[in-house]
Design a protein around this nucleic acid. Structure first.
Length: 287
DNA sequence: AGCCAGGCTGACG
DNA sequence: CGTCAGCATGGC
């Protein structure tokens, strides 16, 4: 991989195994949207239009100073080809391709992931995106970019300053008090970054102490923002897929699921995202 | 028109 | 420890 800078763009060359559109729409992140021939979004207050040109990833609007941040966000330093090769060689999982091919697991900003996945519980991706977008429009910093107005994900204090009824008005429903409480706790000084270097089980316990965060949401936060690539979120889609792929359609217990899945190794969370994609494309309805 | 969604809480055995 | 109703909302 190489990096070069052009006027108003950072360009990463030699990137394979990266389907930009798929990675942005697979349900790991909720704010990217198609724009022109790329994806428009804003991360840590920095608006960009990402496009692919051959084997290059072009971050239009990014400054040289943020190159490292974008490389980390898109997880460009990881060898996905070898991870995919391992999955393709597993007879239980090879069926996840080609649908899952090219998905990279992004490293999102932790507070954004925390709030986003609190909102995600018992909810669908389309509606989750809508709620988050209305939240950002309501109290995020506006930034003009490419003729559009984008809104940064709000700082914790901004969300903590909202009333429950204001949060409910965004469509968040019964999750409003969870969102408020989490934002207050972060604004009050709780440092999510400390979870990055903790053992998975310990970091998980920490997140479970938040009201409205259970095992699934905790694993999402750890996988999608804090680099715990072995965190394995289990939602209804994954439950269906694991039942079909690992248990031959038979009933199983939660502990058996985690046992089976832990054998997938240190990148089981990334593999989880392949399975999730497979499930959403192939296991619609009750299985 | 119901059923469902990147589930969790609190109550009860 | 495991089970389970109830939960706001709107997409399909």
């Amino acid at each position: 991989m190489d990096i070069r800078f052009e006027k108003n763009a950072v360009i990463f060359g030699g990137i394979d195994c990266f389907d930009l559109e798929k990675s942005c729409s697979c349900g790991q992140a909720f704010r990217w949207r198609p724009f022109g021939d790329g994806q428009l979004g804003i991360v840590r207050g920095e608006p960009v239009l990402i496009t692919r040109e051959g084997s290059s990833v072009v971050i239009n609007g990014a400054s040289p100073a943020s190159a490292a941040m974008w490389m980390h966000y898109l997880d460009l330093g990881r060898d996905y080809a070898s991870i995919e090769a391992k999955v393709a060689a597993d007879p239980r999982l090879s069926c996840c391709f080609p649908e899952a091919h090219g998905i990279r697991v992004f490293n999102q900003e932790p507070f954004e992931a925390l709030i986003s996945f609190i909102i995600s519980q018992n909810n669908n991706i389309k509606r989750i995106s809508g709620i988050i977008e209305r939240l950002c429009t309501k109290c995020g910093e506006p930034v003009a970019f490419m003729g559009e107005t984008l809104y940064a994900f709000p700082a914790p204090e901004r969300i903590a300053a909202l009333t429950e009824s204001e949060l409910t008005a965004l469509g968040s429903g019964y999750r409003a008090p969870f969102i408020r409480a989490a934002a207050e706790r972060i604004a009050g000084g709780y440092d999510l970054e400390k979870l990055r270097d903790m053992e998975l089980a310990e970091a998980r316990e920490e997140l479970l102490s938040f009201l409205g965060i259970g095992p699934k949401v905790a694993d999402c936060v750890l996988l999608f923002s804090l680099q715990h690539t072995d965190a394995f979120p289990v939602d209804v889609w994954i439950d269906r897929a694991v039942k079909a792929l690992f248990f031959e359609g038979n009933k199983f217990k939660k502990v058996e699921l985690y046992e089976a899945v832990s054998s997938l190794g240190e990148y089981s969370g990334i593999i989880q995202q392949y399975i999730f994609q497979y499930a959403r494309k192939n296991l619609g309805g009750k299985a």
